[in-house]
Amino acid sequence: MDEQRIYGALEGLKKKQKRALSRAISIVENHEEGMEIVLDYAYQNMNDNALLIGITGPGGAGKSTTVDKIIEEFRKRDMKVGVMAVDPSSPYTGGAFLGDRIRMFKHSSDDGVYIRSFGSRGAMGGISEGTKNALYLFKNYDFDVILIESLGIGQDETEITNFVDVTVVTVVPGFGDSVQIAKAGMQEIADIFVINKADKPDAQMYYNQMKEQLLSIPEEIRPLILTTIATTGKGIPEMVDALIDVGNRQITKRQQKEEARVRSEIRSQLLDRLAERLEGDVEALAEDVLDKKMTPFEASRKIDAKVTIG
């Protein structure tokens, strides 16, 4: 363990230095030895002041451009903004092009904005382990708003909702009809749908379709539908108003979400540890399965039995 690095970051966190936040995020993202020391401190000392906003949606829908514009709007209202931007890592090389920041780069020289890019590093639910842990670190600082822009896979992004107060799903006209909207997940996670690129010819039709589609949901929990043109900033002030408004109402759900989150947190940490510990067994039995000595089902039962005894 690099004590100087870990305890250095910890000291900086206590003094709320930005530099230490950067360092601490790297420590948890890289799974460096000693990360638990930083995380334990961060978890115990985090505050609940920030409004947490998750923005998700398919790639190319304009999430980053939207985030850029809403940072601007929040800054006009003198609110400090933290941004976590997640982009996919390559499952083959582990490399990643973290491209979200390009759209928001002009905020780099603003001290009231902190932007950090993350590679998904193999995560499925839209946010990686590193991102989740980094959120605890963000919550040790005095941000008024924390924005999480997550992977635009489009179909498996449900996990993000438990970590934020408001979930925004950004869509664009032409990305599928009411069938797509009807698919499980989309409606349930969105507090606000934002139809971006609303200057496209079929935007009104898409809005109408979506509106009808959502009619079956009781009015008090029905997602809002907003339209924006992120490149010009049209609709952005209204979107920020809605975020704050919905956020204030959603705060009542914090308890409920926390319960779900804590469970999934323990579970995923546990699975990580187990996976690491049992990797050898998986490898060994995989050979047997490949040699047709047993089925994959037998193999998993065998490992399971071992865990129960151990």
Partner: peptide
């Protein structure tokens, strides 16, 4: 990226301080 690095691009026309 293909070498396995995580790459961030600033985009064009940035300031050195930024």
């Amino acid at each position: 990226r293909d070498a396995g690095f995580e790459v961030i691009y600033t985009g064009r026309y940035q300031s050195e301080e930024g």
